[in-house]
Structures are given as structure tokens and as C-alpha cells.
Computed example of a mutant assay.
Amino acid sequence: MILTKYELLRRVGRLVGEAKRSGRIKGGNGTGGAIVELELLTEKTNLKDAEDEPAEVMLGYGALFARFQRGCPRAFRALTRLSVENLWFEDRAAVSDLVRRCVALEHLSLRFCGFEPAAAMAIDLPPESRLRTLLCVECHVPGVDLVRAPSLVELHCGWRLVDGAPPASFGHAPELRKLTLHYQQYEDQEDLWLLSEFLVNIPRQLELLTLSFEFTKIWVQPEAPKYLRVAFGRLKELHLEKIHPSCNLSWATFLLEAAPLLETLRVKVLNHACKPDWHKKLAPSDTDHSEAAPPPSPGFAHRGLKEVAIRRAFHVAMDAPFVRTVVGMAVNLERVTLSVEELGCNACAAAEERRPKLARSRCRPAGAGAGGDDAQALVERIMGGLASSARITILRSG
């Protein structure tokens, strides 16, 4: 639905509420009932970048949404999934109150939402809350404060990092297993975040962690693995996404040592060569934290890691030193996949045609014509002299 005239919203809301009252909707009981989903869009979009007082418009949308919710309580009690955008509130408790009124809610997606004045988004839910998944994406908040979320399993949050404020804080979230932090730093921002500082309150429960860097510098500060083991004690999967193509991955080895049960590492480099910033050279301090990263402990052997997958479109050979380090430390590693990704769009293909050197960096499997020996040479560069049964595969998808 589009968040429009209140009378239209109320008419639909009351139809849904009546269907719930009459028993025609049997969702929201947590036992496999029907999914009742509302995606609420706004008439205006891209307000976060607008210059003509977007706060007034978004506060208006927030007030209209609150009125809609108060006017159709039965409909909102039936919802199991809710997605909203461009809603700003003056009350910091608005999101927690929303979930309390939606007693069956299991999945909540907030996009471009926030508060005026800006404040951390506090999530403080009652013991009976069923909320399992929370997405807080590109919101006008300096962070997410997870005070109490008794049933929350999956949290996605982030957009811009703010100096002096942690991207997330955790109180009581005993079921949290999947965490995604996707942040972008301002160009003049110097802060690097220690993961141990704000993950300390979720000990030995995370199983999947995704860190997304939004095509800017690496905002994670390398640290001694011993400080992270409390948070990473049960971690099974680690995903590093949207990494700038010039970044050296060697800084990430401390994350592997901090996660003894890690089985899968996936890395995704942003491949849109058509973007003006793609060719921009970041400062060495932004692309290579390997000198600041603590070296692996003497004799350290990772016994859990089984799979490593790295996806990028160009300069796949850049990752050889990092992969060689991982192969050397992961004694039970089974497979390494280096994927030469399909180009992001037609503009990327045009950019490749204009830059022959860039095109030659797209490693090709043996026998594929020009550059056909590159793949085998890369495998030998990684495995030369190492006693490992890991299988190295070079995939080219485009």
C-alpha cells in the first residue's frame, strides 16, 4: 500500500481487521499459520538526499502512520511482517511501541526511518514479543540500541557511522544468531571500530556475522583475537561484503583466529567499474590494515574452516597472498573458490572495453583463449610448497 489519505488507509485496514476477527486469517500464532504482510510505501522517495526540508515531510508520514495504526488496531495485531519507509518520529519509543501493538509481528523492516532530532533507535520489547527479524537500513539514527529483544534471531543495521557513537549496542537478546552490520564512513572520518567493544554483550551466540563496508574504507580495527573470542565462540559463517577493489584482505586473518568454530568465509568485492569512485585510489591506511593486524599466533592451526569463497570481477590475483595465508593455517580446508564475477551492468562492460589492462585482469580458466594460463599460474602461486589437500577452483561467470 501507499501511505496516502487516511480514509483510504482505514478502509483497507478495517477489511483486514474484520477478516482477522471472523477467523478467515489464521496467521500470527507461530505455528505455521498464514503470513500477513504489509509493505507500506510513501508517495515521495529518496527523501534522505533531499534538500527541501525532508524532516517535515517524513515527520508527516510518521504521524500519518501512527494514526493509521491507532485507527486499525485489529489489522495491525494480525500482521506477521511489516515493511515501512520514510517514517520519522519525535518519540524515541515509537518503534518499540509499534512492535508492542503488533502482537503477532515476526519480521520488521525499517528503511530511511528515524527520529527528529536524531537519536539512537532503542528497541525495548516485552517478554511476549515474537519479533525474530529486524532490518534497520539507511535510517536517520546514529545506531541501534537493542535493550531487550527476547525472541530476536536476526538483526540487520547500519548506514553512516557517526563519530563517538557505536553502530550498535546490545542488552538482552538471548536468541540473536545472525548479525549484519553495513556501514559507510564519511570521507573525513578517522574512527575505526573495535568489534570487541560492542559485541561483548552477546557472548558465544552469534553463528553468522556479515560486515559490509559500502564501498569505502575498512572501518573495522584489527585487534588481538583473544578479545573477540567471547563474541565469536560459536561463529560458523563470516561474510565480508562490498569491499573496495583496491583493499588488501590480509587484515582479516585476525577474525579467523578469533572464531575457532568458523566453517565458511565468504568475501564479496564491489564490482561496479562504471562508478566514478571505483577507480579512485583510497589512502593506503584505508585499504591495507595488514600491518596493524596482529600476526597469527605461532603454530596456530584453524581446524574448523572448510570453505573460502572470494568473488570479484577484476584483479583476482590480488587475493593470492591472503588465500595462501588462509590455506596455510586452515588444516582441514576442503575448497577455495575464486569467482571472476559477471560485470555489474552494461556500463561496466563498456568500461572494460575502454581499459584493455583492466580486461586482462579478468583471470580466465585454462584453455579459454587469451589469458588461459592465468588460472593455473594463480593456483600454483597459492599452493606452491604448502601441504594441503584443499581444492582451488577458479570460476568465471561472465
Score class of each variant (00 low, 15 high):
V220L: 13
L79T: 05
P126Q: 12
A377H: 02
L262M: 14
A293T: 15
H107Y: 08
L135Y: 02
V144G: 05
V200K: 10
K226E: 14
M1N: 04
A173T: 09
M1R: 11
L209N: 11
P222D: 14
R204L: 04
R360E: 05
N346A: 14
A292M: 12
K281G: 00
P126V: 01
I25C: 13
P166T: 04
A283L: 14
F68G: 02
A375M: 09
C72Q: 08
G171Y: 06
S339H: 10
A104F: 02
E214P: 00
V230L: 15
T325L: 15
C139H: 05
E51H: 04
L305Y: 01
V220K: 13
V340W: 03
F322Q: 01
F213Q: 06
G328E: 08
S151A: 15
A259L: 13
S129N: 04
A173P: 00
C102Y: 00
S109P: 00
R11Q: 11
Y183D: 01
F115C: 06
G60K: 05
A122Y: 06
A55Q: 05
R100E: 08
E190Q: 12
N86I: 06
L146I: 12
L176R: 15
T45C: 05
V331M: 05
T133G: 02
E334D: 10
D124S: 14
G344P: 00
R229Y: 07
G30C: 11
P296K: 14
V95K: 07
K306V: 06
H156P: 00
A93L: 10
A118C: 12
A368C: 13
E263V: 06
F76H: 00
I310K: 02
G372P: 01
R396N: 11
L155W: 02
A119L: 01
L195F: 05
K236N: 13
G385P: 01
A231K: 02
I35M: 09
H107K: 15
Y227F: 05
E37Q: 11
